[in-house]
Amino acid sequence: MPLNAKDIKVGDTYSEQVCKNLSRTQIVQYAGASGDYNPVHHDQLYVEEIAGYPSVFAHGMLTMGLTGKMLTNYIGDGRLTAFGVRFTAQVFPGATLTATATITDIREEEGNQIADMDVSTVDEEGVEVVKGTASARLDA
């Protein structure tokens, strides 16, 4: 159900656990679906010996996709008008991620009610892995 402007106010937050104990297999699923087969995301031998990272890590876009799931569950399907993030830390297998949206403004634009949000996703230790903003069209 789309979110109604009457039911929210600035400062409201919505949180969701968007992955638990992230598996290497889920990262491989994302590689296969997205088409990004960069070995740093699935190839432990390459990652340790060539790229110089301690472990494979999730695609930034997997973390953004997981974060987007929280947003669409909150604001409704097909309602996003903008969504942008910075990838602030790498996400490694085993991560449990919680994504949060905070309403920062409710405004009118071309006859539509629009909610602006801050978006943040943190891992199980509270380290922020994604930080950004989103906007969505509300019911009025």
């Binding site: 790229a51 110089g52 930034g60 008008t81 903008a82 993030v85 910075r86 990838f87």
Partner: peptide, 22 residues
């Protein structure tokens, strides 16, 4: 050049979408 391929072409720092139509 294996050195060049380290990291597989760099990292993704930021991504922004503006949605005009579903």
């Amino acid at each position: 050049d294996t050195k060049k391929s380290s990291g597989g072409g760099g990292l993704h720092a930021e991504q922004r979408y503006v949605y005009h139509k579903p």
